[in-house]
Amino acid sequence: MRVRCLVVSLASSWRHRTLAVGAMLVLFAAPGTGARADGAFTLTSATVRAGGTMQNAQVFDQNDCKGGNRSPQLTWRDAPAGTRGFAITMFDEDAPGRGWWHWAVAGLPATVDSLPENASSSGFLQKLGAVEARNDFDTVGYGGPCPPPGKPHRYIITVYALNSADLRLAQGRPALMFDHEIGTATIGSARLVVNYGR
Protein backbone atom coordinates (compact mmCIF):
# COMPACT_ATOMS: atom_id res chain seq x y z
CA MET A 1 0.00 0.00 0.00
CA ARG A 2 2.83 2.34 0.91
CA VAL A 3 4.63 1.50 -2.36
CA ARG A 4 1.48 2.25 -4.39
CA CYS A 5 1.02 5.60 -2.62
CA LEU A 6 4.65 6.47 -3.34
CA VAL A 7 4.18 5.65 -7.06
CA VAL A 8 1.02 7.76 -7.21
CA SER A 9 2.80 10.57 -5.40
CA LEU A 10 5.78 10.40 -7.78
CA ALA A 11 3.50 10.30 -10.83
CA SER A 12 1.58 13.28 -9.54
CA SER A 13 4.82 15.13 -8.84
CA TRP A 14 6.15 14.31 -12.34
CA ARG A 15 2.90 15.47 -13.93
CA HIS A 16 3.01 18.79 -12.07
CA ARG A 17 6.66 19.28 -12.97
CA THR A 18 5.92 18.54 -16.64
CA LEU A 19 3.03 20.98 -16.65
CA ALA A 20 5.20 23.62 -15.01
CA VAL A 21 8.00 23.12 -17.52
CA GLY A 22 5.48 23.23 -20.38
CA ALA A 23 4.04 26.47 -19.05
CA MET A 24 7.52 27.94 -18.75
CA LEU A 25 8.28 27.00 -22.37
CA VAL A 26 5.07 28.60 -23.59
CA LEU A 27 5.84 31.75 -21.66
CA PHE A 28 9.42 31.78 -22.93
CA ALA A 29 8.27 31.57 -26.57
CA ALA A 30 5.31 33.93 -26.25
CA PRO A 31 5.62 37.33 -27.92
CA GLY A 32 6.12 40.22 -25.58
CA THR A 33 8.08 38.28 -22.97
CA GLY A 34 11.41 39.69 -24.16
CA ALA A 35 12.46 36.36 -25.68
CA ARG A 36 13.00 36.08 -29.45
CA ALA A 37 10.22 34.00 -30.96
CA ASP A 38 11.62 32.37 -34.09
CA GLY A 39 9.22 31.75 -36.96
CA ALA A 40 9.47 29.03 -39.54
CA PHE A 41 12.35 29.20 -42.02
CA THR A 42 10.66 30.36 -45.24
CA LEU A 43 11.57 31.04 -48.87
CA THR A 44 9.64 33.40 -51.16
CA SER A 45 10.19 34.97 -54.57
CA ALA A 46 9.02 38.05 -56.45
CA THR A 47 9.52 36.33 -59.82
CA VAL A 48 8.15 32.82 -59.25
CA ARG A 49 5.23 31.64 -57.14
CA ALA A 50 5.06 28.40 -55.17
CA GLY A 51 2.78 26.04 -57.07
CA GLY A 52 2.69 28.42 -60.05
CA THR A 53 4.25 28.30 -63.50
CA MET A 54 7.83 29.35 -64.19
CA GLN A 55 7.99 32.58 -66.20
CA ASN A 56 9.72 32.73 -69.59
CA ALA A 57 12.43 34.96 -68.06
CA GLN A 58 13.59 31.96 -65.98
CA VAL A 59 13.42 29.38 -68.82
CA PHE A 60 16.62 28.03 -70.43
CA ASP A 61 17.89 29.77 -73.58
CA GLN A 62 19.51 27.05 -75.69
CA ASN A 63 18.41 24.30 -78.07
CA ASP A 64 14.64 24.49 -78.55
CA CYS A 65 14.05 26.48 -75.33
CA LYS A 66 14.01 30.23 -75.86
CA GLY A 67 13.81 31.92 -72.47
CA GLY A 68 15.75 34.57 -70.61
CA ASN A 69 17.67 32.08 -68.42
CA ARG A 70 17.58 34.52 -65.50
CA SER A 71 17.88 33.01 -62.03
CA PRO A 72 14.82 33.92 -59.92
CA GLN A 73 14.68 36.58 -57.23
CA LEU A 74 14.71 34.86 -53.82
CA THR A 75 14.15 36.01 -50.24
CA TRP A 76 14.43 33.90 -47.10
CA ARG A 77 13.49 34.61 -43.49
CA ASP A 78 13.98 33.18 -39.99
CA ALA A 79 17.00 30.97 -40.58
CA PRO A 80 17.77 28.72 -37.60
CA ALA A 81 20.12 29.78 -34.82
CA GLY A 82 23.72 28.86 -35.56
CA THR A 83 23.49 29.59 -39.29
CA ARG A 84 26.93 30.53 -40.65
CA GLY A 85 26.15 30.54 -44.35
CA PHE A 86 23.62 29.61 -47.03
CA ALA A 87 23.42 27.50 -50.17
CA ILE A 88 20.77 27.27 -52.89
CA THR A 89 19.79 24.55 -55.35
CA MET A 90 17.21 24.10 -58.09
CA PHE A 91 16.38 20.52 -59.02
CA ASP A 92 13.90 18.91 -61.42
CA GLU A 93 12.74 15.74 -59.70
CA ASP A 94 10.55 14.73 -62.68
CA ALA A 95 13.39 14.47 -65.19
CA PRO A 96 14.11 10.89 -66.31
CA GLY A 97 16.61 8.91 -64.31
CA ARG A 98 18.05 10.58 -61.22
CA GLY A 99 16.52 14.00 -61.90
CA TRP A 100 18.18 17.10 -63.33
CA TRP A 101 20.34 19.71 -61.56
CA HIS A 102 19.61 23.23 -62.80
CA TRP A 103 21.50 25.28 -60.23
CA ALA A 104 23.64 24.93 -57.12
CA VAL A 105 25.23 27.82 -55.21
CA ALA A 106 27.34 27.69 -52.05
CA GLY A 107 29.33 30.19 -50.02
CA LEU A 108 26.56 32.72 -49.43
CA PRO A 109 27.34 34.72 -46.26
CA ALA A 110 25.05 34.44 -43.24
CA THR A 111 24.35 38.17 -43.54
CA VAL A 112 22.61 37.69 -46.91
CA ASP A 113 18.85 37.01 -46.91
CA SER A 114 17.94 37.61 -50.55
CA LEU A 115 19.19 37.45 -54.13
CA PRO A 116 18.07 39.69 -56.97
CA GLU A 117 16.78 38.26 -60.21
CA ASN A 118 19.63 37.17 -62.52
CA ALA A 119 22.13 36.95 -59.64
CA SER A 120 23.82 34.07 -61.46
CA SER A 121 24.71 35.82 -64.73
CA SER A 122 25.03 39.38 -63.47
CA GLY A 123 28.14 38.80 -61.34
CA PHE A 124 26.23 39.43 -58.10
CA LEU A 125 27.13 36.02 -56.65
CA GLN A 126 30.82 36.42 -57.40
CA LYS A 127 30.83 39.75 -55.56
CA LEU A 128 29.49 37.93 -52.50
CA GLY A 129 32.25 35.34 -52.75
CA ALA A 130 29.78 32.56 -53.60
CA VAL A 131 30.57 29.71 -56.01
CA GLU A 132 28.29 27.97 -58.50
CA ALA A 133 28.25 24.37 -59.68
CA ARG A 134 28.30 22.93 -63.17
CA ASN A 135 24.67 22.04 -63.84
CA ASP A 136 23.36 19.11 -65.89
CA PHE A 137 23.37 21.21 -69.07
CA ASP A 138 27.17 21.15 -68.56
CA THR A 139 27.30 24.91 -67.98
CA VAL A 140 28.37 26.75 -64.83
CA GLY A 141 25.65 28.67 -63.00
CA TYR A 142 21.92 28.79 -63.50
CA GLY A 143 20.27 26.75 -66.26
CA GLY A 144 16.53 27.28 -66.42
CA PRO A 145 13.76 24.77 -67.12
CA CYS A 146 13.73 23.07 -70.52
CA PRO A 147 11.80 19.81 -70.15
CA PRO A 148 10.76 17.64 -73.09
CA PRO A 149 7.24 18.29 -74.40
CA GLY A 150 4.56 16.66 -72.29
CA LYS A 151 3.54 16.77 -68.66
CA PRO A 152 4.88 19.80 -66.69
CA HIS A 153 7.85 19.15 -64.42
CA ARG A 154 8.28 20.30 -60.82
CA TYR A 155 11.29 22.48 -60.06
CA ILE A 156 12.33 22.47 -56.41
CA ILE A 157 14.16 25.62 -55.33
CA THR A 158 15.72 25.16 -51.89
CA VAL A 159 17.71 27.48 -49.65
CA TYR A 160 19.84 25.71 -47.02
CA ALA A 161 21.01 27.15 -43.71
CA LEU A 162 24.51 25.82 -43.04
CA ASN A 163 26.64 25.45 -39.92
CA SER A 164 29.75 26.28 -41.93
CA ALA A 165 30.79 29.35 -43.89
CA ASP A 166 33.16 27.37 -46.12
CA LEU A 167 32.33 24.05 -47.76
CA ARG A 168 35.61 24.08 -49.71
CA LEU A 169 33.78 23.88 -53.02
CA ALA A 170 35.28 25.38 -56.16
CA GLN A 171 33.47 27.16 -58.98
CA GLY A 172 32.37 24.74 -61.70
CA ARG A 173 32.45 21.53 -59.68
CA PRO A 174 29.57 19.12 -60.48
CA ALA A 175 26.21 19.88 -58.88
CA LEU A 176 26.16 16.41 -57.30
CA MET A 177 29.33 17.30 -55.39
CA PHE A 178 27.70 20.54 -54.22
CA ASP A 179 24.63 18.58 -53.12
CA HIS A 180 26.76 16.19 -51.07
CA GLU A 181 28.77 18.91 -49.33
CA ILE A 182 25.68 21.02 -48.65
CA GLY A 183 24.05 17.97 -47.07
CA THR A 184 26.90 17.54 -44.60
CA ALA A 185 26.44 21.08 -43.20
CA THR A 186 22.67 21.67 -43.41
CA ILE A 187 20.88 22.65 -40.19
CA GLY A 188 17.66 23.82 -41.84
CA SER A 189 16.07 24.35 -45.24
CA ALA A 190 13.17 26.11 -46.90
CA ARG A 191 11.83 25.50 -50.37
CA LEU A 192 9.28 26.35 -53.00
CA VAL A 193 8.15 24.25 -55.94
CA VAL A 194 7.38 25.81 -59.32
CA ASN A 195 6.00 24.05 -62.42
CA TYR A 196 6.94 24.31 -66.06
CA GLY A 197 5.96 22.33 -69.15
CA ARG A 198 6.00 22.64 -72.93
Rank of each mutant, 00 (worst) to 15 (best):
T47I: 02
T47M: 00
T47S: 13
R49K: 13
R49M: 02
R49S: 10
A50D: 14
A50Y: 03
G51I: 03
G51M: 00
G52V: 03
G52M: 04
G52P: 08
G52R: 06
G52T: 05
Q55V: 12
Q55R: 15
N56I: 08
N56A: 10
A57W: 06
Q58G: 00
Q58N: 13
V59Q: 14
V59H: 11
V59M: 12
F60K: 11
F60L: 12
F60V: 02
D61T: 03
Q62A: 05
Q62D: 04
Q62Y: 08
N63H: 11
N63C: 04
N63A: 12
D64S: 11
C65W: 04
C65I: 08
C65L: 08
K66Y: 14
K66C: 02
K66L: 05
G67W: 10
G67Y: 10
G68M: 09
N69Q: 05
R70E: 09
S71N: 09
P72D: 09
P72Q: 05
P72V: 04
P72E: 07
P72F: 09
P72G: 05
Q73L: 02
Q73E: 11
Q73I: 00
Q73W: 09
L74A: 10
T75F: 10
W76L: 01
R77V: 13
R77W: 10
R77N: 15
A79L: 10
A79R: 13
A79I: 13
A79S: 15
P80C: 03
P80I: 03
P80F: 04
P80M: 00
A81H: 12
A81D: 11
A81F: 08
G82T: 02
G82I: 01
G82R: 03
G82Q: 00
T83F: 06
T83I: 02
R84P: 02
R84I: 00
G85S: 13
F86C: 07
F86H: 15
F86V: 12
A87N: 11
A87V: 14
I88Q: 09
I88F: 07
T89E: 09
M90D: 10
M90K: 01
M90V: 15
M90T: 11
F91V: 10
F91A: 04
